[in-house]
């Protein structure tokens, strides 16, 4: 039986991870799990650690035991940790290695796929991921890569295929929502429902779901609701970059000043796409504007 399925014993830790509740993943008591599930649980915990910014520790930890049973799995985690720690070259070579040697290992697929895509080798990542055997994480990742490549059509196909065999899985729902936000129209509303459901239940609420809900509200043009969600979230998680970034967008839309938030974002994550993009566009504006001048100065 798939350990991540609704009846499997990993369902809770798995869901917690994908709902962005990383601390509860780390705090999850794995002692009671059956032996074959120990490794997947451990990997989820390591990934949660990475997500919380403890990449260095994970590198050290996985370095120590990238031999033995879960060799490939842990190595894949290591690649991800290396990437997160900024050691892109090492990460890329590890990922390449693993992709070649263990292309059928689920962890390798997902984690190395992530690394490869993050470092710009999206096609390679897709090739690796396409070998998955009913691995929903891989599906979700494929959908994300397609979306990032603006291939909404391919993403739709992928989600629909996955829905056929895993209709109620959290990951499929999430992937469907990502897609919905891109497709728009009625899909905004369904995406909103998914995130709202996650965000409103105390056991599943996390910045991830709140941001998702707020973003859907923005897309639906319901700015006051989005503002309520985001300002509450911002008070709770003042350093969550996506909350800050989306609040900036919302403030601009609502005609409110956003300078302070931009400064905060710059402080927390100077490499955030919003800032990078703006920087780029600002320079672009200057070059473009330079082409024009009045006839008489």
């Amino acid at each position: 039986m798939d350990p991540f399925s609704a009846e499997g014993e990993l369902i809770n830790i798995h869901n917690a991870f994908h709902q962005g509740q990383y601390t509860s993943v780390i705090d999850f008591d794995t002692a009671a799990l059956s032996p074959e599930n120990q490794l997947p649980a451990r990997i989820l915990k390591l990934r949660a650690q990475i997500a919380l910014g403890q990449a260095e520790e994970v590198v050290t930890e996985t370095d120590a035991e990238s031999e033995g049973d879960g060799e490939a799995d842990l190595a894949a985690v290591k690649a991800l940790a290396q990437h997160a720690a900024g050691d892109n070259d090492a990460a890329l070579s590890t990922a390449h290695d693993l992709a070649e040697n263990y292309p059928d290992n689920a962890s390798v697929q997902v984690l190395c796929g992530t690394v490869l895509h993050a470092l710009g080798n999206s096609e390679e990542a897709l090739a690796l991921l396409s070998r998955h055997q009913g691995n929903l994480e891989a599906v979700a990742l494929i959908v994300q890569i397609h979306l990032q490549q603006n291939r909404t059509d391919l993403a739709i196909k992928e989600v629909q295929a996955a829905k056929r065999w895993a209709q109620d899985s959290l990951l499929v729902n999430l992937a469907d929502s990502w897609l919905g936000m891109r497709v728009g129209g009625e899909k905004y509303q369904s995406a909103f429902y998914v995130y709202e459901e996650l965000a409103s239940a105390p056991s599943t609420s996390a910045p991830l779901s709140i941001v998702g809900q707020a973003v859907a509200e923005i897309h639906l043009g319901r700015l006051p609701e989005a503002e309520a969600a985001l300002s509450a979230a911002l008070a709770q998680y003042p350093d969550d970059v996506q909350i800050i970034a989306n609040t900036i967008v919302l403030n601009v839309l609502a005609g409110k000043p956003s300078d302070e938030l931009e400064a905060r974002l710059k402080q927390v994550q100077p490499s955030h796409p919003l800032l990078v993009d703006l920087e780029e566009k600002s320079a672009f504006f200057d070059t473009a504007a330079a082409k024009y001048a009045p006839k008489v100065a």
Binding site: A51, L80, A118, G212, V215, H219, Q242
Partner: peptide
């Protein structure tokens, strides 16, 4: 543009 966090470790 809005920024929707998806897979962790990816933008």
């Amino acid at each position: 543009k809005t920024y929707l966090p998806a897979t962790v470790s990816l933008p």
